[in-house]
Design a protein around this nucleic acid. Sequence first.
DNA 1: ATGCAGCAAACGTCTTTGCTATAG
DNA 2: ACTATAGCTTTGACGTTTGCTGCA
Length: 928
Amino acid sequence: MSLRRSARIATLTDKNKQNESVEQPTVTPKRKVRSKKGVEDAIMTPARIPTEDISRSSKTVVYEGETDVIDVLVTPVETSINKGKSRESILPLIDVSINKGKSKEIFQHSDGSKSVLEPIDFSWLQKRKFGQSHDNDNDSYNNGTSLQLNNVNEEDDDSDDWEEVDLSEYQDQSDNVSESRPFPNKTIQLTFKMPKIQYKARGITKIERAIRQNIHKAHLLTLLAHGIIRNDWCNDEMTQAMAFSLIEYELQALFDKALVKIDVKHANLLTIALQDLSKWWKDYFIITKPGIRNREYHEFGEEGVEKFFENDEFSDCLPSIDEFRSSLRVGEGSRDTSAQLFVVALRSLGIPARLVCSLQAVSFRFAHKNKVAASRNRKEDNDSNNEISMNNNTNEEVQRTLGLGKYKLNANRKNSNGSKSKRDYVDNGYDDYNLLSNKDTRVGHSKKQRSISKKGRKQDGNLQKSDIPPIFWCEVYFAAYKKWICVDPVRALVNSPQAMEPASNVTDNIMAYVVAYEQDVTRRYATQWGARTRKLRVPVTKDGYDWWHETLVYFARPYESKQDNEEDAHLHKLEVSERMPTSIGAFNNHPLYALERHLKKFEIIYPRQPIIGRIRDEPIYPRRNVKQLHTAETWLREGRQVKIGEQPVKHVKSRIYTLSKRRAANMASLYDEEPPESGLYGEWQTEEYIPEPIMNGKIPKNSYGNVNMFKESMCPIGGVHIPINGIGKVAKKLGIAYGDAVVGFDFQARRCIPVVHGIVVAKESETMLLEAWHEHASIVEAKNNAKREKEVLARWRKFIIGVQIRMRLHNDYVKFDLSDMEEEESEFHHGESEGESELYHGDTDEEDNNNSIGVDNKGETNESIVDKVVINNNNDFSDYMDIESDIYEGKDDVNTEYDFMNEENEEVYREGGFINEDNDTYEVFLLE
DNA sequence: ATGCAGCAAACGTCTTTGCTATAG
DNA sequence: ACTATAGCTTTGACGTTTGCTGCA
């Protein structure tokens, strides 16, 4: 038996053909089919069948998952091809779909070889013509040993891809099913072994990346807002007063002294004062919590966040400024609060101090899978060992969360010696208002008031002396240096910006955005700005949109101070003087340095001096020497031309983008020609395109008979570009020499199509041409208007005649025959209307205006039963809305014909349309 | 354990001047 | 006979980025 298929079964290797005819079980007697020998060995190549097509089609495809059975129902399909251009043909089709929508499947054959199975392209199939008569009908019916797959055009020369399929093997089995009709139900069952191929987990999609980036941005904004609020609190007079009263007089005096004069000597004094103040602060303020920490993405959405917020120990939650003040009063809180209150203290002393925060937004980058897994495992381990080593776990967890690195928390938290002295200073009953009025007595106050101990006060020596970089710290402006100097009160560090940057392997403190309210000062602290830090921030998009910059502008001061300018200059200097990266990879896309190995295809280093360093013997060049190259054509596109005598500085293999080029390349490869290369030029080798002049009224054209007008500057000298499409015809008519102006290219279906916009003519003919154009345009417009008017009137005429016919039918057959309807109708007709008079609208000629269309019945049709129909667009139909809505709701069965009275007691006939309430128009359905 | 280089996969950019049949 | 126009063609290649892996 045989099977008629229109599947393309092509081969990868075996090109031998076996032309065996086959019996046709379906409508068409037999087809010639090409495929590879043996179904089992068949390798199906044609690809790209859209899976939707398969699912929508009537043909049946059964895929039974692990059972590896594919049922294929062969259905004869009648197809008309090419809109009647070609003969109709009948086309049996097979749908083969495997693995639910995967576009490409790999099949393992019995011999172990793998091949790609590509489903059948039905649209392609349907376009193939099938011959209606077949020479070998008898043969095919008789021997029935081979399966012939489609190809209809037996004479077709492109048959190389097609092979006969010997189905004898397969047929032996299926013969048992039915002798006379081998496939009574036209179902074929093909059995394949499922490929044992592990598909790699898909990588990160664009959407996932966008989601993460948005989460990152949202988180940044909340952190930014958090800092703004805390900074506002730092400006609170009351809190400042409280802080001021706490500071010992000696310290205050020291600051007063340092601020007397602006010079280096006094600056040194200020440094000392700051150091002393931080030492004092370190003693006064006890850190009980670490404050904000960076969290990994996977920790969100799990129990991590809730745990984080439930456990007060890890959060830095101060609901209002009251808690902020009380934290100052009590002298304990998170490390963040400590830094913030220190800013309060500085500002209370009149020191210009900025609150600095390294925003810890959850990263939008994707953690390495093993890292995530490791961290999860660690967590699980902890959970499972909970009972056994509760203490250790707590410590570990706390340690991890706090980001304390190698610092071990003291399991036996005792109130260490360090806090003893402080207890003396704590005063729960501190009176704010009292303080305000008694600033002079503040020293006494503070000393005295710190004598009360506070029970339950926790203090951890490790938290106090931890030397890990902070999240919050501050900056003090040194007028003498014209610089902002960083101060970390917790570690009593002054002017050690490098100590603020956490190690790159720390995960819970990532320095990417350092904001000094309100300035981005990241570059002061990030030592590897170009190589590392930059990549942690929301990237600037291709079109130059810098989200972070735009956001900060929104929050920034409306004015720019001199300090800001100085700072910008300083930060820029820092960026420029950043130390070189130490790894090869870090040079890739580095803003300052470049290696030759990272050059892109259209880039070159020019000039190759200076070499500013070496890494593993590779010279390091400044990034500014990396120059973009283009082909001569591309430069022309930019309105530039290569200078005479310049040679390409680089050659690259040219890529083939268009069909014509592909054909040319294929031809060339036949002759073993080398693939073409294109020469690249740098901008320094080019000059502004110099257009050719118009000589003797002749427009200079390119080899395609056009004028290149990629830029307006490319217009031929003495010529003018008239960017009006269609003006070429006019020029031609007038006999004016012109050239089509090519302004660019469109690319579709792998074809390049020049975009012509207007023409180029000699300047002297411009006026004449434009006049002719206007004339031409007005003629065309008038023609079009006349045409349109004619069409409109024709439609109205048709409509009105239709209405008249309908009315007459109604009156003749409905009204008089169905007496019970009459009553009902008459309601709508306002009691008027009997027979023809219903539509008759007396002498209304004078009522016609622009808003009405009156059509006189000139007896052109015998159907006419009315003289005039008025459609008025300007009336307020709201009065009729009730009736209209009745119609819409189907309360009225005869909802096609009504006439109404408008305000002028004028009948308005409306039928077959509806009122558009939105724009108060009456829309008409023209009944064909 | 850490950092680096190379690998693999996904994403995104680059492309740079027809032909034929039919209707009017 | 000539001109204008619709429809058809074939469904990309490869450079760059980025996460992953293995090695030193």
